[in-house]
């Protein structure tokens, strides 16, 4: 009595079918999916047409190298002169024009006596000078030259949050000095920053040169010069590339003057694809402007 004998064998047929299916799938994959060089590269049909005049293909002037160096030097020189001259010249020129139109003093006699005469009255002038401040700074500086005491009331209303303007004199002088010192410091900081950036941009320009030279070297190896070209013509091309250096689009920006030479350079650039990549990845640009002197 062997209980195993009458037991049905499970899944005989289905296992057979599944095994066959696995092998069929593998065979189909091998026959259809893997074809090592079984087809020669398809011939490319090329229509030969007279080349269009080179200068017609003028590329839009959007090269990366130009905008990169420009923005850095420009914005920095500008901010420096601006903040410094502005605060200083303003108070000084003001007193000069003012002495001439002295008649305006008569118009506002009420406010001048107030700061001069009584100290207790100062709570009153405070609200007043604040409102007319933009206009009245002019009349106030006027008295400064004739009377040495008045230069101070002028600055007073400006920082004027403090109730005692006279005590502020020394403080304001100190403040002015401090501000000058601060301005000096800021200027020095800016100068050193500018220096750094100049050095950086110089290093960058060097690396950029090396990068462009590498590309030029590669292209020069691939160039086949047409006969009958003389002199040292230069062509400028704008190259759009993929991040791996594959050349996507080529535009002629400046022709050498010889269409045959332009096309020889263009073929050489296409043959050099992928172009060498810069060692510093930050220098990589999707659009490059390259100058070539094939006869150099």
């Amino acid at each position: 009595m062997n209980p195993l004998q009458d037991r049905p064998e499970p899944g005989k047929r289905i296992s057979f079918v599944l095994a066959a299916l696995v092998h069929l799938a593998l065979a189909a994959f091998l026959f259809l999916g893997v074809r090592w060089q079984s087809e020669p590269p398809a011939a490319v049909q090329v229509a030969l047409v007279a080349a269009p005049p080179a200068p017609v293909r003028v590329a839009p002037p959007s090269p990366k190298p130009e905008p990169v160096p420009e923005p850095k030097p420009e914005p920095k020189p500008e901010p420096k002169p601006e903040p410094k001259p502005e605060p200083k010249p303003e108070p000084k020129p003001e007193p000069k024009p003012e002495p001439q139109p002295k008649p305006p003093e008569i118009k506002i006699p009420e406010k001048k006596p107030e700061p001069k005469k009584p100290e207790p009255k100062k709570p009153e002038p405070k609200p007043e000078p604040k409102k007319p401040e933009p206009k009245k700074p002019e009349p106030k500086p006027e008295p400064k030259k004739p009377e040495p005491k008045k230069p101070e009331p002028k600055p007073e209303p400006k920082p004027a949050p403090k109730p005692e303007p006279k005590v502020d004199r020394s403080k304001q002088i100190e403040d002015n000095r401090m501000q000058e010192l601060l301005a000096m410091d800021a200027q020095r900081a800016r100068e050193s920053e500018l220096l750094k950036q100049e050095m950086q941009s110089a290093a960058r320009a060097g690396a950029l040169d090396a990068y462009q030279n590498a590309i030029r070297q590669r292209v020069r190896q691939n160039i086949v010069l047409p006969p009958g070209v003389s002199g040292n013509p230069e062509a400028t091309f704008i190259v759009d590339q993929l991040p791996d250096g594959t050349v996507m689009e080529l535009r002629l920006k400046k022709s050498t003057g010889s269409t045959a030479l332009d096309e020889a350079i263009e073929r050489a650039i296409r043959k050099s694809s992928p172009l060498p990549l810069p060692t510093d990845k930050a220098l990589f640009a999707r659009t490059l402007e390259l100058k070539f002197r094939p006869l150099e």
Partner: peptide
């Protein structure tokens, strides 16, 4: 080798079903 492969796959499936059940 093709025969061996077929046999081994056959037994893989059969054992799979029988052990599972």
């Amino acid at each position: 080798l093709a025969g061996l492969s077929f046999m081994s796959w056959y037994w893989i499936f059969r054992k799979w079903f029988s052990i599972g059940s």
